[in-house]
Amino acid sequence: MAPLSLGFLSRALHRRVMRRWGHVADRAMRMRLSELRQLRLRALELRQVLDRVLYVADSRLTLPLIGSNAFQKPLHSDWAWRPQLWRGPIFPPGIAAALTKSTFGDEVTLFHDCRISELTVRQIRNTREADLAPFGLKMDVFKFDGSFLSLVIDLPPEAVVGLKRKHLVRMTSVVETEHPLEIFARLNVRHGPNTEQMVRELPLDSDEIVVEFDLAYTKLNEKRVEAAWVDLIFEGPQMNQVILRDVNFSRRPRAEL
């Protein structure tokens, strides 16, 4: 496809279009309702295209760079990963009145049991100097009539290749909350018909939050490991805003004694 021309003709056409829409805006208060209704449809179509351009432009022109998998990994790590949601743009970027089992990217799924969802979830662009992840996830929770709210992050197949009981699995996150609440991380590892589970509470008293799961304390059958996922569980989330600036994972073998 030929490159988009941004030369003289393009600038002239842009000025012409801007003048036309300026005149339309000036006349909007005096238009017949039938004419205004058709104009509104055209404006909405135009805004949809412009929003797409702005979303991609803001994403590509803002640091951290899209696709970045850069974060500090423990020494001797043999696997490290940042989910797509925090690494690159997803579409649609958000959902209002999000239903249970709504997905965000390829690996993250929302679960709750609200009868009426007053939960808005949206991917945002990280722009702070301290941010390493290109994107974050913002959840606005208003009235919450359910008993649980969680985000399930499916770990990729590489996470369980060669997984042993000698491994430590680390989850690092950057979390902001409008009001204090409890957040728990539960690692699930399926091996054959059984699933090992380990739960850690996220200490929200630091900028970067690290929790580790020591598989030595499980009954993991190393020969039958099939899949792994992490549940992020939010306790008492009503009337709160939670921003997950980053979530990433790594694993390393425990030092031999």
Rank of each mutant, 00 (worst) to 15 (best):
A130Q: 05
T100I: 02
E158V: 02
G94M: 02
T109C: 12
C114F: 03
V161Q: 11
T103H: 05
R125I: 15
V108M: 08
I116K: 12
D154M: 09
L155P: 06
D140T: 12
D140N: 12
L163T: 03
V160E: 05
I153Q: 01
L137T: 02
V169W: 07
S117N: 04
F142C: 10
L99Y: 04
V169K: 01
G146H: 01
L151C: 14
V108K: 02
L110E: 11
A130R: 02
A98C: 09
E129T: 15
L163M: 10
I116L: 14
G88D: 09
H167Y: 04
L110T: 07
T109K: 03
R165E: 06
D145E: 07
G146T: 02
T127W: 03
V161C: 05
D145T: 06
L132Q: 08
K164Q: 09
V161K: 11
F135L: 13
D154C: 11
S173A: 15
I95A: 10
H112I: 09
D145S: 11
T100D: 05
I95D: 06
L163W: 07
A133W: 01
N126W: 04
A97M: 06
I124P: 01
C114A: 14
T103Q: 10
L151H: 08
T120R: 09
F148N: 08
S173Q: 08
E158H: 10
R122G: 13
K166V: 05
D140H: 07
F91H: 13
P93G: 08
K143T: 11
K164N: 00
Q123R: 08
T103I: 06
L119A: 11
S150N: 10
R165L: 11
E107M: 13
P156W: 14
A98L: 04
G162D: 09
D145H: 06
D145R: 03
F148M: 05
G94T: 07
F111D: 11
V108S: 03
V141W: 00
V152E: 12
P93M: 01
F144P: 02
V161S: 05
D106R: 09
L168P: 01
K138Q: 14
L119R: 09
F144Q: 03
I124W: 00
